[in-house]
Design a protein around this nucleic acid. Structure first.
Length: 282
DNA sequence: GAGAGTGTTGTAAC
DNA sequence: GGTTACAACACTCT
């Protein structure tokens, strides 16, 4: 689930439904998914919901922050009585009882609404830390790709000493945050740049085009509520996103390239599936 | 049964 | 010290 647009979508939906609510109860079903002192979080109100890269920051009244990372398969699902909130269309496997076998943590608010943290692969986590610690742990993260602090000049400079493939370069959170595998593949296709090119070989003008392309696909992703890739087993706050219908090359091996109509191929790069068009991405 | 999956992090080797 | 490569995390689906 988590690419930046998915996390931002969750953030926006959460903001609408949990700000102002008081946490009455926390059930931890999987110890590995949680860290923090539960009593410090109880009876606190949610002040706001922020995001930094792919980390959600749920701010509480006592200067504590609940940091949430969904990693590969996490979901935050808000349940208000019998209905899930949001806007959009529930998917078929929504008709399930919560907590489910993948529920790792459940928050209950004083008005009896609930927030479930589901995570199939248990890579994700929720941490209750004080604000200072939260900031500290985010220090190494570069600004988001949609942050004006990221400029083509900055990327060009950073890339100048890097021989690593450009795709790995733009997915490096210490360079620029928020570009995951799907959006990296799509941005490179939009910019017509081969994912294999060494980062240092990209001239400034092309870097400008690449940055513009990264922003374009990420912003489209946010607009469409993120992607729900690989069919059904991932949802955005319980609702399917629509970006998957607009993906350019990701998961489209053998299909025609949106630029030139030639066939998209799949390779492995840095251990990750990488889709691109060898005809026009050069 | 093998391999792959939307993400990070730690370690080891250059 | 900077950069790069790769395994590991744990589980489900193809």
């Amino acid at each position: 689930m988590p690419e930046l647009p998915e996390v931002e979508t969750v953030r926006r939906q959460l903001e609408k439904v949990i700000v102002g609510k008081e946490i009455a109860r926390i059930e931890v079903f999987k110890a590995k998914s949680w860290s923090g002192e539960i009593p410090t979080v109880l009876h606190q109100q949610v002040k706001g919901v922020n995001r930094r890269s792919k980390v959600l920051l749920i701010r509480l009244t006592n200067d504590l922050t609940l940091m949430v990372h969904l990693k590969m398969s996490g979901q935050l699902i808000y349940v208000d009585g019998a209905f899930r909130t949001g806007g959009g269309h529930p998917t078929a496997d929504w008709i399930q009882e919560l907590p489910s076998s993948h529920t790792r943590i459940a928050f209950t608010f004083t008005d009896q609404t609930k927030l479930f943290f589901n995570d199939q692969r248990i890579f994700g986590w929720v941490r209750a830390v004080n604000n200072h610690l939260a900031e500290q742990s985010l220090e190494g993260l570069a600004p988001d790709v949609i942050d004006p602090a990221i400029t083509a000049e900055y990327l060009f400079q950073k890339a100048s000493k890097r021989k690593m493939p450009i795709k790995q370069f733009i997915m490096d959170n210490q360079i620029v945050a928020g570009v995951g595998n799907i959006y990296a593949c799509d941005a490179l296709n939009l910019a017509k740049i081969s994912p294999l090119r060494p980062a240092s070989s990209i001239p400034k003008a092309e870097m400008e085009l690449l940055l513009k392309s990264m922003r374009e696909v990420v912003e489209l992703g946010i607009e469409l509520g993120g992607a729900t890739a690989h069919g059904k087993y991932v949802h955005v706050s319980g609702l399917a996103g629509k970006y998957q219908d607009r993906m350019r090359v990701y998961d489209k091996k053998g299909q025609p390239c949106p630029n030139c109509g030639k066939m998209i191929i799949k390779i492995k790069l840095g251990g990750r599936g990488t889709f691109y068009c060898p005809t026009c991405q050069i």
